[in-house]
Write a protein that binds this DNA or RNA. Structure first.
Lengths: 189, 189
DNA sequence: CTTAAAATTGACTGATCAGTCAATCATTTT
DNA sequence: AAAATGATTGACTGATCAGTCAATTTTAAG
């Protein structure tokens, strides 16, 4: 029953290699070697490569779920709310590059079953927060909350994920976030 | 000298498979089979797998360059300019999903040399257009043109690329683009 | 202590992988 | 017509791939 150790050693190694090289770029042999574990044990503990891939995705998703809480409190002034929302989201993306890579692999590689890694299951909470700020007059009530969320999310994800030529260091990023917050305030009023 | 036909048959097949499955997800054998060409000919015409991969990237980049022109004319009213810019860009992304997939493969898979497929080399023209609209008073002169471009680009790329739960059909997209244009007009003033 | 169950090992399979090579075929040059 | 050049073929290599299996060791239960 050294099972926990061995199984988790395999999972850790698989996670690292799958995140780095994707499904078809990773071989069971390399996973076994990295985990310092007999090759056959991978199949004993996980069945086959695809089941191991699924297990890795679930493991990453579980970790991500525990670290979420990107949404600030709705009793903040709207400007602060926006500012924190963007900062939190960008930090979340930055801190969870594993998930990001995994999501991107999942998008590109032939989809067996896309259950597993996803982002922003908290959409409903976002919607509620937006509606709240519409109700107290910070956001034009004519604007569709779905559009507002989509807009914010696309800004945030690009800022955090895309390697941007125009925004190089952290100072630039901070300035850019401020620029966006001020712009969004005007846009939504 | 049936070279043109054979070589291009290989390139076409390779392009399809590389775009679908990436570098390590594609085998030379499958390319040969799809191209209906002798296996050894791939090496005779392209050297090895990586050189074929590079050739495919160049081929895609070349095609994309010919189809660019996403930038509207700067003598349009700013609102029309923004509107057309977003529509053109989204259409460009939609029409060139091959390039998009290739860029994403390139981002994920171990980078040998990232020459080849890239987007928005026209950044300078974008900058000039923004500065022009700042000069004639449509955009606040205090705002950094780089930030403005980054913002527009991130909105556009997300709208075109990310599978969005909240925006399903073309009507939604059109409405969303209008929403963004109006918002950006207010934000930049 | 005995026995059953689980963990671990190493040897093995057949398929596929990228790449080579000498021989043949087709075309062009001289 | 002869020679040279390039295109094409098929047979081959050694490495790696995912996966199997029987035998052995370790651990847990009665």
């Amino acid at each position: 029953m050294n099972d926990v150790t061995t199984k988790s050693k395999i999972l850790t190694a698989a996670r690292q290699l799958f995140v780095e090289n994707g499904f078809s770029g990773t071989s069971m042999g390399k996973i076994a070697k990295l985990a310092e574990v007999n090759y056959s044990l991978l199949f004993h503990h996980f069945g086959n490569k695809e089941q191991l891939w699924v297990a890795v995705k679930q493991s990453i998703a579980r970790d991500a779920a525990n670290k979420s809480k990107t949404l600030p409190l709705s009793n903040l002034p709207f400007k602060e709310f926006l500012s924190q929302l963007m900062a939190n989201s960008i930090k979340f993306y930055r801190d969870n590059s594993e998930i990001i890579r995994m999501i991107n692999w999942q998008r590109l590689e032939p989809a067996e079953q896309s259950i597993g890694v996803t982002l922003s299951t908290e959409s409903n909470e976002w919607l509620d927060a937006i509606k709240h700020y519409q109700h107290i007059g910070n956001i034009d009530k004519e604007l569709k909350p779905e559009f507002i969320i989509t807009l914010i999310l696309s800004i945030v994800s690009s800022a955090a994920l895309d390697p941007n030529v125009l925004i190089k260091d952290k100072k630039d990023l901070k300035a850019y976030v401020d620029f966006c917050v001020i712009g969004l305030l005007k846009a939504f009023r």
